[in-house]
Design a protein around this nucleic acid. Structure first.
Length: 839
RNA sequence: GCGGGCGUGGCGGAAUUGGUAGACGCGCUGGUUUUAGGUACCAGUAUCUUACGAUGUGGGGGUUCGAGUCCCUUCGCCCGCACCA
């Protein structure tokens, strides 16, 4: 068999068909085996599988195949996050129907995924735009509505006054609409919200049990939820009103030099009634984007209302009241006390409007009068704070809260940064919100027996805005209670709702309800969830919220959907571009011939600029098509590349040389498998030890998702086996490599398994047993250091006592030379590791 | 702006978590095989130095017998910021 060459173009398809026919990746929920639910974040069907998807799904695939070899019943499903804006954009640009466009994309991408040989249970595939799926989602929305978890309130959107349409944040560029170029305004609309804040405490507490989530993700969620303890209190105003403010730093109250309210705060609105300057300022605040990043990086602007606020603890102090663009109506009370000395935003504001900047916290009380050049947010003791001077920050917080509580004008309060989740979208391609506005009964849910409430097919994208709202008949219906004519809600749900429960639908797909509780209980929680770090907060928090909401409503009995989370890095590549009449024009790597330091465009042979290595993206054209590389190198080489070298949580730079190296290794393994020598005899202790150490190490590495390390170990064992003389041990090593590599290179593994006469499919084989006795080496190499610097190494018996190690080290010739009779002051001995001699 | 992360040879990275820095791969150099190219195989490859040796994990400082790993500080890059998915 050494003669024949491994040909992926034949083997890949052959084994993919064999797996399908054997139905070996279909999950059996009646199995007695321990279960493993391996899930990768499902893709948006943009048209082509992206190399980032390939990396993500390869990782999950290796784990799924490995778990199967370890005797688990594995659920490894795939589906499509199929609603969203790109389909509508395609409809507007190309005149295609969003549904048809999406279906075509799904068909293409599914074929692409098949060509990579993923061990997926395609029986459970669905798309979120299937009426069956979104119908069940509507039912869940109605359940949440009935459970009091849904409400309507006014909320701001980006409004394009030219296109008369709502813009997503990404459609606002430098404060202008992406198509019209018009200045974007903030406009208020009545929108639907889910009460995620009801679960704020629980979502925060739950992070504690997510031991197998990255610390960074838990920290990001914790900060996002943003629980803070503070003081809410009222300032009496010179016009007789009061204004409630909230502060997490009540200890700095004597440093307050102004009060600021949000532009849509009632005080601001009241002032604007007969003050055109105030009106103009509020209008100005409404211009520009709505994102937090924009608000917080924008120049701090204020409008002095002329109102004065009485300081609650110092009768001699009155503070000016400003309307300020950096105060958010959504957080706390929509009004703050400005303490320039200890908050940088307030500091910037005070500088601009020449307000006093007082120090009220100092790390050393002697510094009480040292001026501040920037806000100091550090710890210390109070100064310039009357009777509170000398208290620590924590003491002062407590004392000032209780003082204001006793005065009856304030109270200690917990405030959350987390806001309720606005789910209304003024778009067509999403789940229709199943609500009917009844003339007599207000908003009422669509009766469940009328679900799914389907999107109309006949829509037009001739003009911007929501085609559902423009549709001639769709929104006209009758009130389910009175039967009178009524209108449907024409907003659709945020696509994040689609991905907030799909993992339940993969576990069970009854026709008459969203999921079967028993089946869900069998499969959930997901043992291993894998996806991009960009979902660290929103998607993962929303999915956790839905799971809790379903538990709250008694539909399931667990609160955390994902037991273990892994966030993989991006696939990156340098960019190629040229300046062309003021615009940067990008070229794909396949259009470019890359030299050592330079690159030229194949088309005209002229140089192009080489840009930095960044995330692959369509706009920068630094992408490679998985189909192209699979055709050239085969699925196994591509899979191997996805797993090699870069740690999976870090970015993976795509490289032509790298994939070629992987392809060579595939063929190198094939040749090694060909050297299986049934007639060989004899043992090889060293190789046996290496083999069993590798079995254990690769298993540990895969369980830890450290695929790059598993790959390195397989390289090492391959090298050692190639060098070894024929023996039964060598045959065992070859067989072992085949089994260990099979989750990563399943096509090659099947082909070789067949040639070596393995039973059945290797996809259904068992992971090799480790001989524990062979794991431990009996000799170790120890380091001999002099004052911490390596001077010599010695090979000694493992477990050699400390004093013997010391004696051996001191006797070493090099050490003797170095010491040259000097006095040994100290010797540090670490068993099996090193001896450090200090003189 | 706020929150989170990353930084080690020419490149991707490893380092049993405070104990021999550079495993493994790519690339490169030299050689062998091949009609040639490719493949394959062998040897070498952190930097400086003739050598002894010295230096070296973004920069600076510190703790320690010993620091890539811990602490302080600083620079650069990346991700998220609630209507992209």
């Amino acid at each position: 068999m050494t003669e024949n060459r491994f040909d992926p173009s034949i083997a890949d398809g052959r084994w993919q068909r064999a797996w399908d026919e054997a139905r070996c990746f279909e999950a059996d929920s009646n199995s007695d085996k321990p279960k493993s639910y391996v899930l990768e974040m499902f893709p948006y069907p943009s048209g082509r599988i992206h190399i980032g998807h390939v990396r993500n799904y390869t990782m999950g695939d290796v784990l799924a195949r490995y778990k199967k070899m370890r005797g688990h019943e594995v659920l490894h499903p795939m589906g499509w996050d199929a609603f969203g804006m790109p389909a509508e954009n395609a409809a507007m640009e190309k005149g295609v129907h969003p549904g048809g466009w999406t279906r075509d994309n799904i068909a293409n991408m599914k074929a692409q995924l098949k060509r990579i040989g993923f061990a997926l249970d395609w029986n459970r595939e669905f798309a979120t735009c299937d009426p069956e799926y979104y119908g069940h989602e509507q039912a869940l929305f109605i359940d949440m509505f009935n459970a009091g978890l849904v409400y309507r309130k006014e909320s701001e959107v980006n409004w394009d006054p030219v296109d008369n349409t709502v813009l997503a944040n990404e459609q606002v560029i430098d404060g202008k609409g992406w198509r019209s170029g018009a200045e974007v305004e903030k406009r208020k609309l009545n929108q639907w919200f889910l009460k995620i804040t009801d679960f704020a405490d629980d979502l925060l507490d739950g992070l504690g049990e997510l031991k197998d989530w990255p610390d960074k993700v838990r920290l990001m969620q914790e900060n996002w939820i943003g629980k803070s303890q503070g003081l809410q209190f009222a300032f009496e105003l010179s016009d007789g009103q009061k204004v409630e403010v909230y502060s997490t730093r009540p200890d700095t109250i004597f440093g307050a030099s102004f009060v600021a309210v949000a532009a849509d705060h009632p005080i601001a609105q009241g002032v604007a009634v007969d003050n055109s300057d105030a009106q103009a300022f509020i209008e100005k605040c409404k211009a520009g984007g709505t994102t937090a990043a924009e608000l917080e990086t924008a120049e701090k602007l204020g409008f002095d209302t002329g109102i004065a606020a009485q300081h609650p603890l110092d009768p001699n102090v009155q503070l000016p009241v400003y309307v300020a663009n950096f105060v958010l109506m959504d957080y706390g009370t929509g009004a703050v006390m400005g303490v320039p000395g200890h908050d940088q935003r307030d500091f910037d504001f005070a500088k601009k409007y020449q307000l006093p900047i007082a120090r009220v916290i100092a790390s050393d009380p002697a510094d009480a009068d040292s001026p501040l050049t920037e806000a100091e947010s550090g710890d210390g003791v109070l100064v310039n704070s009357q009777s509170y001077d000398g208290m620590t920050v924590d003491e002062a917080k407590a004392a000032i809260i209780s003082k204001l509580e006793s005065q009856g004008c304030g109270e200690g309060k917990t405030v959350w940064r987390l806001r309720d989740w606005g789910v209304s979208r003024q778009r067509y391609w999403g789940t229709p919100i199943p609500i009917i506005y009844s003339p007599d009964h207000g908003p009422v849910p669509v009766p469940k027996d009328q679900l799914p409430l389907e999107l109309p097919e006949d829509i037009d994208f001739e003009e911007p805005g929501n085609p559902l709202d423009r549709h001639p008949t769709w929104k006209h219906t009758t009130c389910p209670i009175s039967g009178k004519p009524a209108l449907r809600e024409t907003d659709t749900l945020d696509t994040f709702t689609n991905s907030s429960w799909y993992f339940l639908r993969f576990a069970s797909q009854p026709g008459d309800k969203p999921f079967d509780a028993e089946e869900v209980a069998k499969w959930l929680p997901v043992e291993q969830y894998i996806g991009g770090i960009e979902h660290a907060i929103l998607h993962l928090l929303y999915a956790r919220f839905w799971t809790r909401a379903l538990k709250h409503m008694g539909q399931i009995d667990f609160g955390e959907p994902f037991a273990s989370l892994f966030t993989q890095g991006m696939v990156t590549h340098e960019t190629y571009s040229r300046q062309d009449s003021g615009r940067e024009v990008y070229f794909t790597p396949s259009e470019v011939e890359r030299g050592g330091e330079s690159a030229v465009l194949k088309l005209d042979g002229k140089p192009v600029d080489i840009g930095r290595v960044i995330k692959m993206s369509k706009s920068k054209k630094n992408v490679v098509d998985p189909d192209d590389i699979i055709e050239t190198y085969g699925a196994d080489a591509v899979r191997w590349f996805m797993l090699s070298d870069s740690p999976p949580e870090r970015d993976l730079p795509w490289s032509e040389a790298g994939i070629e190296g992987c392809s060579r290794f595939v063929h190198r393994l094939w040749r090694l498998f060909g050297q299986f020598d049934a007639g060989a005899s004899g043992d090889d202790k060293a190789l046996a030890r290496k083999t069993h150490q590798t079995i254990a190490a690769v298993a540990d590495d895969i369980e830890a998702l450290s695929f790059n390390k598993a790959v390195a170990r397989l390289y090492e064992l391959t090298g050692a086996t190639e060098k070894a003389k024929p023996s039964t041990t060598r045959n065992e090593a070859i067989r072992t490599i085949l089994l260990l590599a099979s989750p990563m290179m399943p096509h090659l593994a099947e082909e070789a398994w067949e040639q070596l006469g393995g039973e059945g499919l290797i996809a259904e084989a068992t992971w090799p047993e480790v001989d524990e006795a062979l794991l431990v080496d009996d000799e170790v190499t120890i380091a001999i250091q002099h004052k911490g610097k390596l001077r010599d190494t010695l090979t000694v018996a493992k477990g050699l006592p400390k004093d013997e190690m010391e004696a051996l080290a001191l006797a070493s010739e090099k050490v003797q030379r170095l010491l040259d009779g000097a006095e040994v002051r100290k010797v540090i001995v670490v068993p099996d590791r090193l001896v450090n001699i200090v003189t």
